[in-house]
Design a protein around this nucleic acid. Structure first.
Lengths: 337, 337
DNA sequence: TTGAAAGCGCTAACAC
DNA sequence: GTGTTAGCGCTTTCAA
């Protein structure tokens, strides 16, 4: 403190120890929940001093001294996208419960950026990194290299899809296959797929699965429109499809709900209607699929739970992904024929 | 390195210096972009060594040594909520551009939890904290105290609403007033308000503004249903309202778009329809308001931009919030009478 | 320009 | 049970 009693910099453990009249070590022991015993009288004095001074341990200093940080790094393509929002919520739930900090970085679906961020993240020496944004078919080489670089740092990497120390696996193919089968069962025979993201594993699996299931039921995918997993991309693809002609009774398989929502808007803007005219189904079951009209038929993926699992996977010594059955949810956007 | 050339712990600056055959200080100078000049030959050797070893500076150690961290802490009620998702995206955009890390914590709309998180966050010694989740009318006492505690640490606090060193202000009252006026002009005379969050400033301002504007145009709010700014709350309130009876031609003013979306679902589930039967308007213009059918009339709040502004406010020495005009966006959910 | 050395705030042996 | 002290990895005076 200076003359007028105003503190000019935050109180340190040293200050607390001095005020309490104990050693640095003792102060540290009572304030950081170490195992070692401290006499009650000392403990009280330290706590009182810490309280008075408004002391909070400096996390960076603790991390340097301990050699481990308390951060979980999360990488997503776009935090405002409901798909990633759900995942992030799950990760945050787990981390908060353990007193860990979660940092968020945005890749903007750019592999280059992804690798750069991963590299920068290394400096954080995170306890774990969760990559929920990879866009590559086979994991991008740079991403793989950066991911590997976390090993010597002691941090565990968990990826949605392949590439990390541990993976969160979603049976995109199986889910899509069931969806395709169900759609065929409901009488659809012709379909177009939109939002298929070139070189993205998730997209390819979903497309392959749907094609198989729908085919088994006697249906056929007539055209595939490429794009990204973004709303605008879905709208653009649908607009193009409409321009090329879409017969009434056609089913649109959007490779993600977000894409489906964009497509629904485009269908209406094109003067058509969703449902009996053009049916639409998606994948993910993000919250918005229940809010659109007609409500969207889709495949439910418990994203928040998976985010939580991803968190567990970063911190638990033993971990195994719980079995996950993707459920087809039929709603009004596919009334059947 | 040990005998077989495998590194067992991450390379330190010390290692780099040794391999490069220079001093610690020199290595530090070339690797951290300090102002000081280093001879080209030295620089090259250091960079080469760093590259070879795969060196990445330990951010915690840097933070302790420098006395400042590179983190911006963001507090939101729920990261999966589009309102906060948009804000987070804006914050992340700004932070990423400056090489700062953003940490996210979830308050779950709980004042107690908010205070606790703020306290824990202090340990991070963040460069700035952005509070986008406060639920109180007058800022909660504990929150205020925790916010104040950041001052001696050198971090700046920015709040959506009052309470921090700097505030992001949204003219909720003015926007709602214009919305109310516009709705009256479109022929509505009777309205009910839902989702009004008890004790939440934002909510009160919106309600007051709408009441005034709508009243000026000859309209009247007949009932107010309390709740939170969550989708389910909106649905529940609307269900209750329906049970009590809602005449055709009534306008529902939902205090946020998320609430409005919940209400729309409830209206349909109640066997009524949105538009000519029961009109609905919201506030915020989150992405989903353009995806529902009929599309939602609302007041556009540039949330992502405000998130970006909040970021600027935490880091810029000089900062002033750019003037912000909230625009009423009339869509099909309020067809007029 | 370069390097030696004293911190930054905290932890964890190790000794008393 | 308590205190001393040597680090943790990095930055930054201060001499040379």
């Amino acid at each position: 403190m200076n003359a007028d009693g105003m503190r000019t910099s935050p109180p340190t453990l040293h200050d607390v120890a001095r005020v309490a009249g104990v050693s640095l070590a003792t102060a540290s022991r009572v304030l950081n929940g170490s195992e070692r015993k401290v006499a009650e009288s000392f403990r009280e004095r330290v706590e009182k001093a810490a309280e008075e001074l408004g002391y909070t341990a400096n996390a960076s200093a603790q991390a340097t001294a301990r050699g481990t940080s308390a951060v979980i790094a999360l990488l997503v393509a776009d935090i405002a996208d409901p798909y990633f929002g759900q995942i992030a919520a799950g990760v945050a739930r787990g981390a908060d419960a353990q007193g860990l900090i979660v940092t968020v970085a945005i890749t903007e679906r750019d592999a280059d950026r992804e690798a750069k961020i991963l590299r920068a993240l290394r400096g954080q020496r995170p306890r774990g990194v969760i990559l929920a944004a990879s866009r590559a078919e086979t994991p991008d080489a740079r991403t793989t290299a950066e991911l590997a670089a976390f090993a010597p740092l002691g941090g565990r990497t968990v990826t949605f899809g392949e590439g990390g120390d541990r993976s969160i696996r979603i049976d995109n193919r199986g889910g899509a296959e069931r969806l395709g089968r169900e759609m065929a069962a409901r009488g659809y025979r012709r379909a177009i797929a939109i939002g298929a993201d070139e070189g993205v594993r998730t997209s390819d699996d979903r497309l392959a699965g749907f094609t198989a299931g729908f085919g088994d039921g006697g249906g056929r995918i007539e055209r595939v429109y490429r794009g990204t997993f973004e709303r605008e991309s879905g709208a653009a693809s649908m607009t193009t499809a409409l321009a090329e002609g879409v017969d009434a009774g056609t089913l649109v398989f959007a490779l993600s709900d977000v894409v489906a929502v964009g497509a629904m808007t485009a269908i209406r803007d094109g003067g058509r209607s969703v449902g009996d005219d053009i049916a639409v189904c998606g994948f993910d079951d993000v919250p918005v699929s229940r809010d659109v009209t007609p409500r969207l038929t889709t495949v439910r993926v418990p994203l928040a739970d998976l985010g939580y699992e991803a968190f567990r996977a970063t911190v638990d010594a033993e971990w195994e992904q719980p079995p996950l059955e993707l459920e087809v949810v039929v709603r009004e956007s596919t009334p059947g024929r």
